[in-house]
Amino acid sequence: MDVREGLFYTKEHEWVKIDGKIATVGITDYAQSALGDVTFVELPKKADVFKQADQIATVESVKAASDIYAPLSGAVEEINPELDNVPELVNQSCYEKGFFLKMQIEDEAEIKNLMDAKSYKAYLESLAK
């Protein structure tokens, strides 16, 4: 399983990349592999505001649907426009081209609720047991 250093993670297998006031959000390699072929991603609209842990998006494969929760509170800054036509980017490049959205970070203190790469790896190992 590909777990990238420098990113933050949630227990729901979302990753977050922090660039100053902007957080980029996607799903992890573990998540895309568990889902299988992604067929559809339902994203929020730009400027929609979410609280940490609110449902923010949905990702679907042929036989599964998963809700995606906001890893941090804030307003949506940008959504990945490619996913509408090419949802398989989530499978092909989950940490880059297959990102879901970018949001403005409202409260940096919330970052401490996220896992770093090391803790996420340990979390994945605990799931495998």
Binding site: T39, F40, S61, V62, K63, A64, A65
Partner: peptide, 12 residues
């Protein structure tokens, strides 16, 4: 589009 349906989404 089976992900709309009850056998996958249950109450949703």
């Amino acid at each position: 589009l089976q992900t709309r349906e009850q056998h996958i989404r249950r109450e949703k």
